[in-house]
Design a protein around this nucleic acid. Structure first.
Length: 827
DNA sequence: ATAGGACGGGTTTTT
DNA sequence: CCCGTCCTAT
């Protein structure tokens, strides 16, 4: 993104496009004769960038007039189509870069697109100013018209953390119990409303009553009012304000209609209602005016319904844009026929899809089918996958050697990651974890950012409150509350209030002096904002505020890492022209770099795997309750199940050559062992493309298809040749105390890259297993210590502890386990 | 001010 | 079980 929001001329000063629009495409079905002739003519002198496209891709690229919906299945060259289409628009002189609006969901996608267009078009074309995420484009629009939303153009963008703190204040100000009404929850509600495009007046009565003793609506309105006085926005506002501005100012909207000759949207299946409203305002034109909108998406990969995405948007595209051309990309360039066959058969169980079937020409008898494996428990699952990874890495059995970078483990829920980490640490296998909190979410980074924000934006009270007593200056709660009240009463920012208060003798001398110093410092830094280079100023701020000293004095293990992160923060500012430009970047771009030089297995959730591909993919945890997730079923019903199925589809289609699916019979949930059923999705895989692994262990076995998951096949199992060993997690922690800037330690030849995760490592989470536990919890246990019991999976053992309905049992063969008493019987 | 204990909550995540 | 948050006791 650009550093400044003033570099884009608002009105077109460029000449009109050089070429007359091409004649409308012939017929609805195949190409007419004239069109074919023209296509043939074009083929002869087809520009380089068009060669190598298949007919459908080419149609998607070359159908420039009128609405187009491209249904691009996984691995069908979606990004290629989008970028080539833009290159084509530019190369044919249909529009200038600044006349193309291209929207993506993530910064990564936007970046990638920019790079690829650059390659296609050559360096001649300046970066496209209106290519970006919904939010970054929203910021750009809002900066231009801020006053129409009651803001100044230098408004701040609050992140989730700020929002929660602000709401908490509001809840307290209402005299409500902030424990009974958690701010985080209300922030979530506001987010949901905003995703739906709802302002306080629009929210359903039921929603309004559900929170804060029925004060939900008032609280939402108060929140919006407070944002306005803070000259701030949350993420939702970046869409909602422009929508309101467009609706209330038809002339402004009309200007944008004139500006944006071509509109492109990536991942259309992920748009939420607000984004849809925004897009329709910009794309729908009066009758007779060209509506050159092209949306690309895949209804089968819609996996964000839970955060407001509406698959309906893609399903009703043709209604919204009558006469739309719908182009399906079904030729897959990524995966083997077995992988496509398995994925296609699975997803066919969903109703209400537009219906695509991926195919490939490549057939290779050597290609391995999708393999389903059974394991006793999650520990064995991790062990077996680890072994398979090492086997592929060594390349024995005549196979070639595989890089760890080509392998990924995709899990449904992040708590599953831990077991793999433990195992890989023990094996000394390099891995990287993708997901979790980011660089910019770290404590020290957020503190430093608060200083910078307050310098650039003195009205940023949230930043003020964050750092006024960091490092400790003796300005505790009492003082801050006083400042807060004083500022609110006079309707001025807290920093300005402080400047007034230090002139009085309202505060005790000690506090007064401390606050005076703060006020002086900020005055000083603000004065230097224009003159001093921003990286220098940043360093100066961190030094003079005592913030770096605070961490230098800290003897804890993380302190050196935090200092290193601060240095990195300042270093990363160099790429920007000003401190303001940097702040804007950070508020919208939260992603972390990966270290590509490191050869490591990737571990991530299925959600974060969307859009990626790997030679070999491992999909563990295909069990009822985990995948499909119980909560998705409980809360989402049928559509919840279908979204889970799409997630499974996404998982399988990430694989180029090898896809290994696993399920276990026992998983530890809330620390208790529970027996689990294989996922229904396993039954939905086609026999023709799937093999069932045998002899992974002597008790595994898939049971041969439908209905084959009897418990009896586990009876003679002896899964505990290795007793439960202490996880290597602690060692992992120790190993990477020096992991700082990039979060990867390299001791003992073992590298762990933690993309996103902060110093705390992965958090243990677990799935819902409460029902079983609660149903019997009130009865006193019928078992007591010393009882000899039998467990259908663990065999015989002696009870060593009883706690409600939870028993700790020393099994003869399985070692010590904690199980619910319902699973054992007295011998 | 900070450690330590009680307490709650535990799917997925971007901007 | 395992973690983060909040309140209490030093």
């Amino acid at each position: 993104m650009s550093d400044s929001f003033d570099d884009i001329p608002f009105f077109d000063e460029e000449p009109a496009p050089r070429k007359a629009p091409a004649p409308p495409p012939a017929g609805n079905g195949g190409l007419g004769i004239a069109a074919r002739a023209m296509a043939a003519r074009d083929q002869r002198r087809a520009p380089d960038y068009l060669s190598g496209l298949n007919p459908e891709q080419r149609e998607a690229v070359e159908t420039l007039d009128g609405p187009v919906l491209v249904l691009a299945g996984a691995g069908t060259g979606k990004t290629r189509v989008l970028t080539t289409r833009i290159a084509h628009i530019l190369a044919t002189g249909r529009a200038f870069p600044s006349q193309i609006l291209a929207v993506t969901f993530t910064n990564k996608a936007a970046r990638e697109m920019k790079e690829r267009i650059g390659v296609l078009v050559g360096g001649a074309v300046e970066g496209m100013p209106w290519l970006g995420t919904f939010h970054s484009i929203g910021v750009r629009l809002l900066r231009r018209h801020a006053e129409l939303a009651g803001l100044r153009s230098d408004f701040t963008i609050l992140d989730t953390d700020d929002v929660v703190r602000l709401i908490k204040q509001l809840i307290q100000a209402e005299g409500l119990d902030d424990k009974r009404w958690p701010a985080r929850q209300f922030a979530g509600m506001i987010d949901t409303w905003k995703n739906k495009g709802l302002l306080p007046a629009d929210i359903p009565e039921g929603d309004a009553r559900a929170f804060a003793n029925g004060k939900g609506r008032e609280l939402y309105a108060a929140y919006q009012a407070r944002l306005k006085t803070l000259n701030a926005c949350d993420f939702g506002d970046l869409l909602l304000h422009p929508i309101a501005i467009f609706r209330q100012n038809p002339d402004i909207l009309k200007d944008y209609h004139g500006r944006f000759r071509y509109i492109l949207v990536d991942e259309y299946q992920d748009t939420n209602t607000a984004q849809y409203m925004w897009l329709r305002l910009l794309a729908q034109r009066p009758k007779g005016t060209p509506q050159n909108v092209c949306c690309v998406g895949d209804d089968d990969q819609s996996i964000y319904g839970w955060r407001g995405a509406e698959v309906d948007n893609i399903l009703r595209f043709e209604k919204d844009f009558p006469g739309a051309r719908v182009i399906k990309l079904e030729r897959n360039y990524r995966s083997t026929e077995h992988i496509l066959g398995a994925a296609g058969h699975l997803i066919a169980h969903n109703e209400g899809r537009l219906g695509k079937t991926l195919f490939t020409d490549r057939t290779d008898p050597e290609d391995e089918k999708v393999i389903v494996h059974a394991a006793w428990d999650s520990e064995e699952e991790a062990r077996a996958i680890g072994e398979e990874i090492e086997r592929l890495q060594r390349g024995d059995a005549g196979g070639r050697k595989h890089a760890l970078n080509d392998m990924a483990i995709l899990v449904r829920a992040s708590f599953q990651m831990r077991e793999f980490e433990d195992r890989f640490v023990t094996l000394g296998l390099n891995y990287r974890v993708i997901g979790g909190p980011r660089f910019y979410e770290r404590l020290e980074i957020r503190d430093a950012m608060a200083y910078f924000r307050l310098v650039c934006q003195p009205a940023d009270d949230l930043a003020f409150e964050r750092i006024v007593n960091t490092p400790k200056r003796g300005l505790g709660d009492t003082t801050v509350r006083y400042l807060h009240d004083y500022a609110r009463a006079r309707d001025i920012p807290m920093l300005a209030a402080s400047a007034e208060i230090v002139e009085t003798d309202e505060l005790k001398p000690k506090a007064r002096k401390a606050l005076f110093d703060v006020v002086q410092s900020f005055r000083n830094w603000q004065q230097q904002l224009e003159a001093t280079p921003h990286t220098e100023l940043a360093e100066q701020i961190l030094e003079e505020s005592g913030y770096t000293d605070m961490w230098k004095a800290d003897k804890s293990a993380e302190a050196p890492g935090r200092l290193e992160n601060l240095k990195e923060l300042v270093r990363s500012m160099e790429a920007f022209e000003s401190m303001r430009g940097f702040l804007e970047h950070v508020s919208l771009v939260m992603d972390a770099e990966t270290n590509e030089n490191l050869d490591a297995v990737s571990i991530m959730t299925l959600h974060s795997a969307k859009g990626l591909e790997f030679d070999t993919v491992f999909l563990p945890g295909w069990e009822e309750g985990l995948f499909p997730h119980q909560r998705a079923l409980d809360e989402g019903g049928r559509s919840g199940l279908e979204e889970e199925r799409r997630l499974a589809y996404v998982g399988i289609t990430r694989a180029k050559h090898r896809c290994h699916i696993w399920f276990v019979s026992n998983r530890r949930i809330h620390g208790l062992w529970q027996s689990t059923m294989p996922s229904r999705f396993l039954d939905e895989l086609p026999q023709a493309h799937v093999d069932v692994a045998v002899a992974e262990s002597n008790y595994g076995g898939y049971g041969g298809g439908r209905g084959g998951y009897g418990q009896s096949r586990f009876d003679k199992a002896d899964p505990f040749a290795n007793s439960y060993s202490t996880p290597g997690w602690k060692r992992a922690q120790a190993n990477k105390t020096d992991a700082t800037r990039d979060n990867w330690g390299t001791r003992s030849g073992h590298a762990v890259e933690r993309i996103g995760y902060g110093e705390s490592g992965p958090r243990g989470r677990t799935i819902d297993g409460e029902l079983v536990a609660k149903s019997v919890a009130d009865k006193p246990s019928q078992f007591s210590v010393g009882d000899r019991v039998f467990h259908v999976k663990f065999g015989n053992g002696n009870i060593s502890a009883v706690e409600g309905n939870k028993l700790t049992i020393d099994f003869d063969r399985a070692g010590q386990k904690r199980v619910l008493e319902g699973f054992v019987e007295r011998v």
